[in-house]
Every structure is written in C-alpha cells, then in structure tokens.
C-alpha cells in the first residue's frame, strides 16, 4: 500500500520536473530572442534598451518583495540608487573602474541598503509599511543630496569611465558593449532568481504572502525570511543601479526618487506581480510606450499612464502576463 502511494506520488513529480525545466529554458530563449530582435530593430536606440534592462532589474527586485512576499513598497528606488551610487563612488573616488567589480560593488551597496530599508519597512503593516517605505526613499534622497562631496549632490556624480570588460570589450559610443553587458546581467539575474523562487526558501516566501500567521505557527521566522529576501532583492536592484551607472557614466539624484519607485511599481503591476516574466514584460512595454508617447507630449503621457493604470486595476488585475495566461487557459479549455 505504502509502496503504491510513494510511486504514485513520485510519478507526477518526475514528470513535472523536466516540464518546468523545459518551460524555463523556453522562457530564456524567448528573452534572448527579444534582446536580439531589439538589437537589430533599434541599432540607434541601444541606450534606451540598456536603460530598460537596468530598470527591469529594479522591477524584478520589487517583484521579489511585493509579488512573492506581499510587502507593499513605494520606496524601492532606494536600493537601486544605493547600488548606482556605490558603484559610481567606487569608480570616481576609489579607482575601481573594472565593470565587473563595479557591478559587484553595486550589488553589495544595494544589499546593504536592502538590510537597512528592510529593517525599517518590515516593522509596519499596511498603511504604516507604505509610509515607512516612502520615508526611507526620501531619507536616502536627502542624504545623497547632502553628501555632495561624494555624490555630487544635485549636479549628479559624473566622471565614471569604466574599463573594457575583461580588458577586451571597450564601451563604445553606440552602446553596443553596454547593451550586451546588460543582456548578460539580466539573463544571469533571471536564472538566479528562477532558482531562488523555485527553492524551498522561495516557497516559504510565497507562504508568508498567503498566510504569515500560519507560517509562524509552523515554526519559521517571518521577519527573518522577509529580511533575507530584502537583501537578495537589494542585490538585484543594486546590480540594476550599477548597470545604469556604467552605461550612462553618470548617477543622478533621480535614481533615488519616489517617482522612480512608483513608476517601477506601476511597471510591475502592469506586467503582473508574482511572476518574473510579468516583471520583464511590464518594464519593456511601459518604458517603450513611455518613450514613444512622451516624445510627443509629456503631459499627455501622464494622462495616458493614469488611464492605463485605472484600466489595469479595473479590467486586468493580474497584469498583462497574468491576463494572457488566463486567456490562454480559457482558450485551451474551450479547445478540449
């Protein structure tokens, strides 16, 4: 009896394993294909594509805490900006101009900012949590503004000149190297995050989002787990910030702004929370659309984004990716 049960229990699992592996590899292939198409379709606009990828890392990192852990935050740019400033300061003031090292410094900077802001934000719930996250990003912003000796204050931190990657690929004027570097970073981040979200730790985080009291009753530490996730999220956001610093060679105070935090959250929800694909889709569609419309009139852009947000909340609460999945499921169900 027991033997039958174990075999029957083991069978679907064995079948499921290659299934998700196949799906992830397919997803990875799609990401690379889209990146390649972007390269060939917009060879004169690689700077924008690189910026999209930097922000995509920020949106992925918000997804980790909001989509997977259920922490509502309007202050995640603090982590992104901390990474950007950490790598920028390392390059300008300490002569660390190797791009890989700069990314590592940025990730560490973001992770440290993650510990600090996580320790503050996780003390509250609901409204208090939102307000704490807003206060944290403003605090970071004002601190960076005041410490102008290191950060350049409101003029921004300029003079970042990264070395060639591996000493071979120099950063060219067209941004080809920067774009390739960005794609590589996003792909690596995606693989690592895929592994983390599928791990028991990732499952624990999802459990906390569903029912924190039950997780505590199971004997797991809710605050400790969330703080760990915040540190991971900070490292991802910091990588995005470092990428931005390397590709644009300047770090501005806007990378620590409330506006960037809010926009990144909007991108995440537009794409769909709780899914890495949703974060990527949301970022690409939002920023491409923004570039397209705001070139015409920045204020029309605000009106359209506002209307779009209201429409998403009313008609597609699971975001573009989630709604597409639902539609695909329904279509498949009808087909049967």
């Amino acid at each position: 009896m027991a033997a039958i049960e174990t075999t029957s229990a083991a069978k679907p699992e064995a079948a499921a394993r290659p299934n998700w592996l196949k799906r992830d590899l397919l997803g990875l292939a799609v990401i690379l294909a889209v990146a390649a198409i972007g390269y060939f379709l917009f060879p004169n606009n690689l700077a924008l594509l690189t910026r999209i990828l930097g922000v995509a890392l920020l949106v992925l990192s918000i997804d980790l805490v909001t989509g997977f852990c259920g922490v509502a935050t309007l202050g995640h740019a603090a982590l992104f900006g901390a990474g950007a400033y950490a790598s920028g300061i390392a390059a300008v003031h300490f002569g660390i101009t190797d791009p890989l090292l700069m990314v590592v410094v940025g990730a560490i900077g973001g992770a440290v900012a993650g510990i600090v802001s996580g320790a503050v934000i996780l003390r509250g719930h609901g409204l208090a949590q939102l307000v704490l996250s807003i206060a944290v990003v403003h605090l970071f912003h004002e601190a960076a503004n005041k410490a102008s000796v290191y950060t350049g204050g409101s003029d921004g931190l300029s003079g970042i000149s990264p070395d060639p990657i591996f000493g071979i690929f120099a950063f060219d004027l067209w941004g080809r190297t920067a774009y390739g570097f960005a794609v590589a970073l996003v792909v690596i981040a995606f693989i690592v995050l895929r592994l983390i979200t599928r791990s028991p730790f990732g499952m624990l985080c999802r459990g906390i989002k569903e029912d924190p009291i039950r997780i505590r009753a199971m004997g797991a530490s809710v605050q400790g787990t969330l703080l760990k996730m915040y540190v991971i999220s900070g490292a991802v956001a910091g990588t995005g910030g470092a990428l931005n610093a390397i590709s644009t060679q300047v770090v501005g105070l806007d990378s620590l702004s409330f506006t960037l935090s809010a926009e990144a959250l909007v991108m995440l929800v537009l794409g769909g929370t709780g899914s890495l694909y949703g974060a990527l889709i949301g970022t690409v569609s939002f920023m491409w659309f923004e570039d397209f419309v705001s070139a015409a009139n920045p204020f029309h852009w605000l009106t359209i984004v506002g209307a779009l947000l209201i429409a998403v909340v009313l008609f597609a609460p699971r975001g573009l990716y989630g709604t597409a999945l639902t539609l695909a499921d329904r279509f498949r169900g009808n087909g049967k």
């Binding site: 909007v266 929800v269 204020f299 605000l302 009106t303 506002g306 209307a307 947000l309 209201i310 909340v313």
Partner: peptide, 13 residues
C-alpha cells in the same frame, strides 16, 4: 495605491 496613483496622474495631465 495603483488606482489612486492613476487618478492622480490623470488629474495632473
């Protein structure tokens, strides 16, 4: 938050 930010953006525009 999203709905009310959306309303704010619309009003500003």
């Amino acid at each position: 938050v999203l709905m009310t930010i959306g309303i704010t953006f619309c009003v500003i525009g």
